[in-house]
Design a protein around this nucleic acid. Sequence first.
DNA 1: ATATTTGCAAATAATTTGCAGTCGA
DNA 2: TCGACTGCAAATTATTTGCAAATAT
Lengths: 144, 144
Amino acid sequence: MYQKNRVEEMLRNQGVKPSYPRMRIMSYLLENKTHPTVDEIYVNLLSEIPTLSKTTVYNTLGLFKERGLVQLLTIEEGEARYDADVGLHIHFQCNKCGKVYDFYPEAQMVEFGLPKGFEITEKHIYFKGICPSCEGDKEKPVLN
Amino acid sequence: MYQKNRVEEMLRNQGVKPSYPRMRIMSYLLENKTHPTVDEIYVNLLSEIPTLSKTTVYNTLGLFKERGLVQLLTIEEGEARYDADVGLHIHFQCNKCGKVYDFYPEAQMVEFGLPKGFEITEKHIYFKGICPSCEGDKEKPVLN
DNA sequence: ATATTTGCAAATAATTTGCAGTCGA
DNA sequence: TCGACTGCAAATTATTTGCAAATAT
């Protein structure tokens, strides 16, 4: 469980005013490491923040991304997922259940070089396949 | 320039009937290694195939992907890009001009392992940043 | 003639925008 | 009070779907 103050400080550190919706959205991301979509965040917070609008969720996540507080995952076509872990790690999405897993490889396993002149600001590694719990049947996404 | 017969054979090999639109779409991908979006393919082929519809482009690319003839890139949010090179390589997208570059790293540089039980069918590596031609100003995407 | 492919138009889904109301220093 | 934040509704964009017409074997 993240302290309210801790989250507030995170936001302030990046120049983001810690309004109530922003605090709750950041807390949600920190407490639910499930790479939620905008809609998942919206739906789940709506019961606690009845006045919340999806526009605010979009605005807030866009702002967080700009300030480097979150990562935007484009692993799946047609929907944006957000991750409060901004460090380099591998995302694996199961083609059957749609769940996204995290893996933290040894540093030397992800050492790639690019020619001089390319300034890298973001690195994303996405794998797809079948996860152990879905092993057996190889159908396409069912997403519950 | 790809031989008509060569493309036809590629499609047949994967059980795809080589209709005229399919041949042209595959040729476009083979000749324009720019990771085009559905719309780019559609617009560019329209002058040569006036009856072409976007539905056909969607259908065809979906079929190609199913048969492993092309790769779907989700490097950018909100639009699907397609790549006829299905081997593992690094995609770098410039935040300013939006162009997507390809890099072919040494095999040992992209050796990552996952726990037993995860069956991997696709690997994608996406980098973002500023390319040499856009060096100097770090604005956000302009996309021509 | 029969199955497949194509293409229009409508439907859906995610995201963005315009703008008015609200909140906080 | 002023600028920033929020939220509704409408607009935009990408993609999918239903079905009829065209095509090919």
